[in-house]
Amino acid sequence: MTKILLINAGSSSLKWQLVNMPAEHVIASGQVERLNLPGTIVKVEVGGKKSKEVVETLDEMTAIDRVLKRLITVGGVQSLDEVEAVGHRVVAGGTVFKGPVKLTPSRIDQLKKLSELAPLHNPLEVKCIELLAQKLSGVPQYAVFDSAYFHGLPEKTAIYGIPYEWTKKYQIRRYGEHGISHQYLANRAAEMLAKPLNELNLITMHLGSGASITAVKNGQPYDTSMGLTPVTGVMMGTRSGDVDPTLVPYLMKRLDLETPEVVLQELNASSGLLGVSGVSSDMRDLHEAAKHNKRAKLALEMFVNQVVKLVGAYYTEIGGADALVFAGGIGEKDPEIRQAIIDGLSILGIKIDTTLNEAGDTGPLQTEDSRAQILLIPTNEELAMARGVQQVMDKDK
């Protein structure tokens, strides 16, 4: 058995698991929510026992320190020396990394060079890798890439309407993100529907602070909402989602800027739910604020509308769907948003059972006469990551 520590650092949360492989036994797990926001939430589970505490604001680095300390204090391990490998979720692998890899100094340098493809994520993930290399000296580290799942997108959905020479010369394409999650969700949906994956059309929705939607046709990814970088698609916690590209030079002129970096930073870190509402990037805060704040209410309505628009487009694009899958922090925990999204898709004959939706249990949520099934599936990126790490370790034996 090999104890693998899995680190999944996102834009607003850090999830982790300590897993015994290849048995896939979770020894301990946890999540740090509301990173860089007041009232950071720290959750830990060991042996079915759960704990939760609210602490002062944690950033990604202090969160990792807390995770390592909790591993020992909650009984996950007696000593950090028991950790034999570390697996990291890395968002952007570009065309360089098409599957999981063992990390070396040269590969870490390559990850740094890919930061422009995921400016909120890759630099953070490299920091996590370097920090854990210090904290767990000598322990091999591995990267599992979100973008790898989308390497097989059909060219007609993968590339943009720009000069084809640019596409090839500069490797400009729709890389997509959350691929680890979307792949897990597709496989899990097939299990729940008791059908071969290659016979299914699915629309998987990973809705959280980062949000993306993927169309799966005959079991394979066919289209996805994120593009060259994770700023595109539906609006998110702090990311704008799709905007007219001429917005960048337009704002550069209005703000008297010589380079686009400031505008791009704002589109990534100060836009989306936060930018529209002026209140928060966290959906929980917005639900409360929307009772008396018109901008918070508008942000919620925009988010729902953009999800509905994309799901409707994908439903047509793949010729109908056997199931719609909700996952991610919002998709799994926010029945109000789920209800609003499905209500917006009523023209397609897709209907949600209000009682099942409010209960929020894993499994089907649709009514008996719904044209497509609606599944709530808690994503498990960490399990998919562990399998990817194990795959590389087995090859290296």
Rank of each mutant, 00 (worst) to 15 (best):
V126R: 04
K309N: 14
E24N: 11
L310H: 12
R239V: 08
D109R: 07
G363R: 15
V91N: 13
E288I: 07
D343T: 11
L5S: 14
R174D: 00
A384D: 14
S29F: 15
L365Q: 09
I41S: 10
K333R: 13
M236Y: 14
T214S: 09
R89S: 02
P38A: 13
G241C: 01
I64L: 09
S115N: 10
A386N: 12
L273T: 06
V77S: 03
D65P: 01
E199V: 02
D285Q: 06
M61Q: 11
K127R: 14
A372D: 09
I162N: 00
A321S: 13
L117A: 03
T259K: 13
G320M: 11
G320C: 14
M393G: 04
E199W: 10
K113Q: 15
N8I: 14
G312P: 13
D285L: 03
L124H: 15
V243F: 00
A211K: 11
N198F: 02
P105F: 04
A359P: 03
I377Y: 04
L124C: 08
Y142R: 07
V74L: 04
W166H: 07
V77D: 02
T204K: 13
E332D: 10
K397E: 10
L348M: 13
D394W: 11
G360K: 07
G344D: 06
T238M: 00
V44R: 06
L267V: 02
V90E: 01
D396P: 07
H287A: 04
I374R: 08
D343A: 08
M236A: 06
K309L: 10
L14I: 13
V67M: 07
T157H: 09
L103P: 05
K50A: 13
M236D: 09
L365D: 07
V77W: 07
I337R: 03
Y175K: 08
S277P: 00
V19H: 02
S12E: 10
P105W: 08
K69G: 12
G233F: 02
I374V: 12
E56L: 03
T246N: 05
V248C: 04
Q366I: 00
Q31Y: 15
L114S: 05
V54R: 09
D322L: 07
H206A: 05
K397Y: 13
L136G: 10
L117F: 11
R295M: 14
